[in-house]
Amino acid sequence: MDPLSTLWETFFDWDAMREALPEMLTVGLPNTLILAVSAALLGSVLGLLLAVAGISRSRWLRWTARVYTDVFRGLPAAATILLIGVGLAPLGMQVWGPDPYPLGILALSLIAAAYIGEIFRSGIQSVEAAQLEGARALGFSWADAMRLVIIPQGIRRVLPAWVNQLIALIKDSSLVYFLGLVASQRELFRIGQDYAATTGNESALLLAGLCYLALTVPLTHVVNWIDRRLRNGRPATGSTEDDDDTASYAATEGDRR
């Protein structure tokens, strides 16, 4: 057999792919999404707290946020996941039993929070001081002014960077396989790897890669789309019913004086 066809069969064995596909879609894909989405939610909440701590008037809060961010951004994700997954396992055992899955989500969230916190902080700090003054002059407390006026504007400005962080999370979710998941908990990468190990053929792993791309490539386009919209502006929808206005932001030239 010539090397080229060996190579072809190693990566493009359609039968191997077809065999792995059902489990990939019914087990791997949902698990990857659960890990990434729940870590994104928890990481965003923690990130927002870090961002607010990072700009607070308390030196101790700022310092704590700084150290946290430096540590969790500075460590390799794999090391953090292993440290937390193994280090907190006895604690997890008492709370929810031997399942490593929640600790995997926790570790991913803590890592994401460090990055998302920096993203949110830069967005919040980019909002003009006049906005805070405008809100305070109406009688809003500092906390209300931040919550209702400053933070919503700041976060909108950094949505593209936040979506990039989701992409990173989807990829990093593959690392929780270190923690020894049971069969029904395996995400895309682990399922691809298992099939590859039993068949000695990498096609299932390639299929897993294609699944990741199917998730991440559209998201990169979402980033570009939000970016364009923030840059060029868009007329308001005329709806005033949405209390948070999350869906209908129009950042036109006027906003970015």
């Binding site: 006049a130 405008g134 002059a137 109406l138 919503p152 932001y249 950042a251």
Partner: peptide
């Protein structure tokens, strides 16, 4: 500040 209203040179409306 609820008793004393203030209007600024740059309006300071909330753009969002």
């Amino acid at each position: 500040r609820q008793r004393v209203g203030m209007v600024f040179q740059q309006f300071n409306l909330f753009p969002h």
